[in-house]
């Protein structure tokens, strides 16, 4: 494997976004890119990351290799990379370590780290292709704000999506709160758009602890997409350049 990223920033932010949810995981490398799928310890949430080969310049991977990595350790190594550094990830065929090289843009500094790999026996889940009943795109910062505000009211949020908009409702001991985002297009700045497509109304409840955790990915993308169908896990997607993505799946709360 040899994969070079123009800016370490992307990889730093991806790892930062998932490291509190999953601790040990395989980065599955093949000729299509670097993928990761892992559940949290309590099997409530699942993270699915894809960094396509096109995200890297260049990308070369001659055979499928899983790189079993302790994300806490990886975070320590990535601290040494500045956001604007060129990052190269390298590995041998049957590796004991993954090699990370950080180069300053002005090329007067090269840092090289070897991170020990671990054998991780990870369950892979089949994520079915789902035609979601409702899809809502919104500014990622707005979603983060809503989740953190409502977490002060309640542990759970009910998300309801209709043609009029998407509503987040929390009921707690101190009272209730709700936030509605109406569909709208901002002609000056499409990053501010709220876009809803709906085949049938949905209403589901989720743990805000997990949703606020997913929001650690906010810096990766201006917009976030929520995909909902009744009685299936919510998908929260941060789309990245070159068809790469960071997706989180969250099992709904089960009715009263």
């Amino acid at each position: 494997l040899e994969a070079r990223l123009e800016a370490a920033d992307l990889f730093k932010k991806v790892v930062e976004a998932i490291k509190d949810l999953v601790q040990h995981c395989n980065f599955d490398c093949n000729d299509s890119g670097i993928a990761l799928q892992a559940m949290d310890n309590s099997h409530v949430a699942l993270v699915s990351m894809m960094l396509t080969a096109d995200t890297f310049t260049p990308f070369r991977c001659d055979r499928n290799i899983p790189l079993g990595i302790d994300l806490t350790s990886l975070t320590k190594v990535l601290r040494a990379a500045q956001s604007s550094d060129i990052l190269t990830i390298k590995s041998e065929d049957a590796p004991d370590v993954v090699n990370l090289v950080f180069e300053g843009k002005d090329q007067d500094r090269i840092s090289e780290y070897d991170l020990k790999l671990m054998d991780i026996d990870q369950e892979h889940l089949g994520i079915p292709d789902t035609e979601y009943a409702a899809t809502a795109s919104m500014p990622a910062a707005d979603f983060k704000r809503i989740c953190s505000d409502l977490l002060l009211i309640s542990e759970a949020v009910s998300i309801e999506c209709t043609k009029e908009g998407i509503t987040f409702k929390a009921e707690g001991d101190i009272g209730n709160g709700s936030v509605t985002l109406r569909q709208h297009s901002d002609l000056e700045n499409s990053d501010k758009n709220v876009d809803i497509s709906l085949t049938e109304p949905v209403a589901l409840s989720f743990s805000l602890k997990y949703l606020t955790g997913f929001c650690k990915a906010t810096g990766l993308s201006n917009q976030v997409r929520l995909c909902l169908s009744n009685d299936v896990p919510l998908m929260v997607e941060y789309a990245l350049a070159n068809n790469s993505y960071l997706r989180f799946y969250l099992a709904p709360k089960i009715g009263d």
């Binding site: 099997h43 949430a45 369950e123 089949g126 079915p128 896990p233 099992a251 709360k253 089960i254």
Partner: peptide, 14 residues
């Protein structure tokens, strides 16, 4: 009260 569902009850193990 409401319980928390598990992701493995929706997505099958490969």
């Amino acid at each position: 009260g409401a319980g928390q569902g598990s992701i493995t009850s929706f997505f099958a193990k490969k």
